[in-house]
Amino acid sequence: MDIAVIGSEEFVLGFRLAGLRRVYVADAANYRERILEAMAEPSIGILAVDGKDLENLPHNIRQRVMDSIQPVVVPVGSDESDLREKVKRAIGVDLYKTEE
């Protein structure tokens, strides 16, 4: 399976330098279509995304992206708010809060 990356031209360039070939360049206007396209691809195992881009997505799509297991979406350079929310919902306690 492949590792893919999606994001702005600058974000993607670094990953190209690490050898990645599955690259989706997207700007704010077509980000939503591009990420859904990347997620529908069965050969992608891991999808690296810029955490800042995710914040601009509509809530339901962001939820879908973060809950996805095939591919696994790993946000880079963002805080843990998405996981924190999930933990809060499943366990019932905000586990991240106590250690701040």
Binding site: I3, G14, F15, L17, A18, V72, V76, L83
Partner: peptide
């Protein structure tokens, strides 16, 4: 290039742990 290769390595490990965590939740 080296720095990004290292990042990629970390990302792959993070991917495994995060998926496990999501599934567990």
């Amino acid at each position: 290039s080296k720095a990004f290769e290292k990042l990629l390595e970390t990302l792959v490990r993070a991917a495994e742990i995060e998926t496990t965590m999501k599934r567990l939740l």
